[in-house]
Simulated assay, not measured.
Amino acid sequence: MEVREVALGAGESYELRLTGRGACGYVWTWQVSGDADAVSVSEAAPAPAEAVPGAPVERGYLVRGRRPGGRARIRFAQVRPPYPDEAPYDEFVLEVEVTAAP
């Protein structure tokens, strides 16, 4: 599991790219803890690409700082939705500190 720390100004965004395993039925999910209202997370529009069947596909997620002084921890987990009790295939943690706008 990789852990990355970023500092964002209020209103500033950070794009995170994670490799997917959609051909195997896995999707990335996320959960925000800490000051959950300090950030927002959304899925970025996928980049147009010619995908080879069965090849990994990179997914983008946009994290935006919302409330200065907040600290949030975003845990991304690569799971297969039909098997909720199965351990994640991969995990990624993003620690975010939101500062005053630059």
Results as ranks from 00 to 15, higher is better:
Pro102Ile: 09
Leu8Trp: 07
Glu2Val: 14
Gly34Met: 01
Pro81Phe: 13
Ala45Cys: 00
Ala10Thr: 09
Gly34Asn: 02
Ala38Pro: 04
Asp90Ala: 15
Tyr83Arg: 14
Val52Leu: 12
Val3Ala: 15
Ala100Leu: 06
Ala45Phe: 01
Arg80Gln: 14
Ser33Gln: 10
Tyr26Glu: 10
Glu43Ala: 12
Gly20Asp: 06
Arg4Val: 14
Arg59Asn: 11
Arg73Ile: 06
Pro84Met: 09
Leu62Pro: 00
Asp35Gly: 07
Thr29Ile: 09
Pro46Met: 04
Tyr89His: 15
Arg67Phe: 00
Val98Arg: 02
Ser33Met: 05
Ser33Cys: 06
Ser33Asn: 08
Gly34Glu: 03
Gly9Pro: 09
Tyr61Thr: 03
Phe92Tyr: 15
Ser13Phe: 12
Pro82Leu: 13
Ala23Asp: 11
Gly70Tyr: 02
Glu86Ser: 14
Leu94Tyr: 12
Arg73Pro: 04
Pro46Gln: 10
Glu2Ser: 15
Tyr61Ser: 04
Val93Ser: 12
Gly69Ser: 06
Met1Asn: 14
Ala72Cys: 09
Val27Thr: 07
Gly25Trp: 01
Arg4Cys: 08
Arg17Lys: 14
Pro56Gln: 05
Ala51Gly: 10
Ala36Thr: 08
Gly65Leu: 01
Asp90Ser: 14
Thr19Asn: 06
Arg80Asp: 11
Asp90Arg: 15
Val93Met: 12
Glu86Leu: 14
Val6Lys: 08
Pro82Thr: 09
Glu2Gly: 14
Val98Met: 06
Val98Gly: 03
Leu8Phe: 07
Pro84His: 11
Gln31His: 08
Trp30His: 12
Ala45Tyr: 00
Tyr14Ser: 04
Ala38Trp: 04
Ala51Leu: 11
Leu16Phe: 05
Cys24Gly: 11
Gly34Gln: 04
Ile74Pro: 08
Gly60Phe: 01
Ser40Ile: 07
Ala51Trp: 10
Glu2Asp: 15
Ala77Asn: 05
Ala10Val: 07
Gly65Thr: 02
Val32Ser: 04
Pro56Met: 01
Glu12Asn: 06
Pro68Glu: 05
Val32Asn: 00
Val57Tyr: 02
Leu62Asn: 02
Ala87Pro: 13
Ala36Ile: 00
Met1Ala: 15
Pro53Trp: 09
Val98Lys: 03
Glu43Trp: 03
Val39Glu: 01
Pro68Arg: 01
Val32Thr: 10
Glu91Pro: 07
Gly34His: 01
Glu5Thr: 15
Ser33Glu: 13
Gly69Lys: 03
Ala49Pro: 06
Pro56Leu: 03
Val32Gln: 04
Arg66Lys: 10
Ala55Val: 03
Leu18Trp: 02
Val79Met: 14
Arg75Ala: 11
Pro46Ile: 04
Glu2Trp: 13
Arg67His: 03
Gly11Lys: 08
Ala7Asp: 11
Glu95Thr: 02
Ala36Lys: 05
Trp30Val: 00
Thr99Cys: 10
Val63Ala: 01
Pro53Lys: 05
Gly60Cys: 00
Ala7Phe: 10
Ile74Arg: 07
Trp30Leu: 01
Ala51Glu: 11
Arg71Cys: 05
Ala101Thr: 12
Val39Lys: 03
Tyr14His: 13
Arg4Lys: 15
Pro48Tyr: 12
Ala23Val: 00
Val6Trp: 06
Ala100Trp: 01
Cys24Asn: 14
Thr19Lys: 10
Ala87Trp: 07
Ala7His: 09
